[in-house]
Structures are given as structure tokens and as C-alpha cells.
Design a protein around this nucleic acid. Sequence first.
DNA 1: GTCTATAGGTTGATAGAC
DNA 2: GTCTATCAACCTATAGAC
Lengths: 190, 190
Amino acid sequence: MAATLRLLRERGIAQLTTREVARCAGVSEASVFYHYRDRAGLLAAAFAAGLAPLQALGEEGLAGDDRRAVLRRFGAALERFLDEVLPVLAAAQADPRLRRELADFLREHRAGPHRGVDALSRYLAAEQAAGRARADLDARVIALSFIGACTTRAMQRHMAAPAGRLPSLERLVDGTDALLRPAPSAQRGS
Amino acid sequence: MAATLRLLRERGIAQLTTREVARCAGVSEASVFYHYRDRAGLLAAAFAAGLAPLQALGEEGLAGDDRRAVLRRFGAALERFLDEVLPVLAAAQADPRLRRELADFLREHRAGPHRGVDALSRYLAAEQAAGRARADLDARVIALSFIGACTTRAMQRHMAAPAGRLPSLERLVDGTDALLRPAPSAQRGS
DNA sequence: GTCTATAGGTTGATAGAC
DNA sequence: GTCTATCAACCTATAGAC
């Protein structure tokens, strides 16, 4: 399975043949079929293993006094996570059957982008409730925007496009923190 | 070529065989090889055609009096564009050779997420210069965040995940417009 | 330029010994 | 459970007629 995920991430799904997996794992091809029944079973297991981090990415780290530190930690964890998972998600788009299996998996585990949005927007709403963030902003929209920015950065990296032309994570964190800060007038008026 | 792109988007790259393309286009398989030399040539041509919208998506529509209308138009165009292009980008991840070709294509045409970020942030900077948007915000960060949000929405749609759980485009536009508005104090102070 | 026919190679999967 | 040997199907690509 380790060999399968490695091949899937490094070479893509096209070269992920049962032969290559067996060779890379140092076993015979028949062993692969004995354990996973057929290629579809192997891929299903690989997807379940490759997407396991989906559930692990909870709201851990989404707490702390320094909001910029919280955003930085969350953004960095999200991007690390996407670097691992994006290749697997992309591979599932190669075949309609795999696509359906992925959709079922996401539905069954209630996974998807909205999970991160929910978690982050809860944190932002708490910041608003505590008076540390502008209360007139839409927390879910900010959460989606921040997560979307991290996702776009990870995608650009994954496509090996010319890097360094998108704002850095540090700049993204600073900019997001800035727009959350209550307006000076509101602070004076309290 | 139309048949190729249709198969690529609907069934994924795994089932994109020269046989199926020929059958779907109503020609013989040999014709495919006559025109595109080999399967790699066919795929290269399909990528060039499928990614053509990358250049078309300029800053058109990024002007107008009503900022919310501008954002709505830009966001809708971007999501339509992504619905077409994401399947092609995903397919390129199936094979290392295709991946390199895609990276070269993006480099050569200076395409990539940063293009949209540049265009949108120019518009936002103009809004700031005109005093219609908070001048203390990082325009490039806002642009990346808005584009990232649209991208994440398109990705969720593309993965056939349970829809409707992310903020709508309308809500995203309203929320982004809101955080851009100058603070009341700044308006009074002028 | 388009076709039919076919070669050559790769892949998924099975049989059967150990 | 793991191996070797093998098969049947499929896919890319070419040859040659029209």
C-alpha cells in the first residue's frame, strides 16, 4: 500500500499498474490480487488510505491568543494536507468509476471543503463574539476565502507552475488578520 | 478534437483510448494517427484546445460602477471557466509526461492562478485609489482569496461532493464587497 | 485523407505448485 | 500466503489499398 501511494503521487495513475506496484513493493503480482481481489480493490484501498488525513484535519490548532499565529498554523497545516491529498483527488478524476467512489467516500465521511470552512468560521465567529474581529463581516465567507487562497497556492505548487508569483502564506495571514481588525472608530466609540 | 475533449471531460483520461475517440468521432482509428501522429500528439492537441480559455480569461468585465456587479460577473465567469478547465488540469496529473507538458504550456503562456490575481488586484487597487475601498488592505491578498473561494466552489462541484454547503457566489460577493467598504470614520474624516 | 486488417506490446487476472 | 507461468483482452501503431 505504501508503494501504491508512492507511485500514485509520484507518477500518476496512468503508470499505476499492478505489475509496477508489485515490483515496487518487492512482491509478486499475484500477491496484489490475493490481497485486493482486483485492480479496483487496490485503488479503493489506496484512496481510503490516501484520503485518511481528511478526517484527521479537524479544528486542532484553531485556538490560541495570537490570531496571526492561529491562522499561520491552520494555513500551513492545510497546505501540507493538500500537498498530500490533491494528487489523490486528481487521480480519481481519471475514471468515472473512481470518481463515483470518491464522491461516495466524501459523502459517507462528510468530508469536503465545507469541513474546513465550518471549523475556521467557528473560530472566526468566536473572535467576533469576543470583540476581537469586526462583527459585520460574514465569517463563513472569510473562512472560505482563506481556505480557497491556501488551496489555490497548493494547486499552483502541485501543477509545477512558475512559483512565487502568488502572495506568500505569511502575507495572506497578515492581510486576512488586517481585514478582521475592528475599525478604529468602533474602538473609540466603545 | 471535439470528441476528444468531450470524452476527456465526461469519462476521464483513463477511457480516452484512440479507439474510443475514433468511434465517438465517427472516423476510423487510423485517421486519428494520421492527423495527430500518436496518442501523445492527440493529447497535446487536446490540452492546447482545452486550455485555450486560459488566455481568453482576461480582465474583461473587470470594470463598471457597481462593484458588487463587477465581482459577481468576474466570479461567475471564473467559475464557468474552471468548470471547463479543471477536468483537463486533473487529467494532466495522470501521467508525468503530460504533467511536464502542462507545466511547460503554463509557463510559455504565462498562465496560472496569478493571472487572475493580477487582474483582479489591479481593479481592487483602482477602487482603493478612488477612495471606494479601504486603502489599508492588501489588494493582492483579497484578490487571491476571492479567486480561491471561487476555485474551491468549482472544485467541490467537480468532485460531485454534496453541494450547497459552501456559501453561494452571491453571498461571497456580498461578503467581499462588505469588507472592502471604507470604515464610517474614514468617510466622516475626509 | 480515409479506410480495413493486422502486428506487437502491455495489462489485468487466473491456475496451480509450494 | 507467496510464488512462477500463462492466458485473454485491450491498446497503440503501422501497412497498404482506395
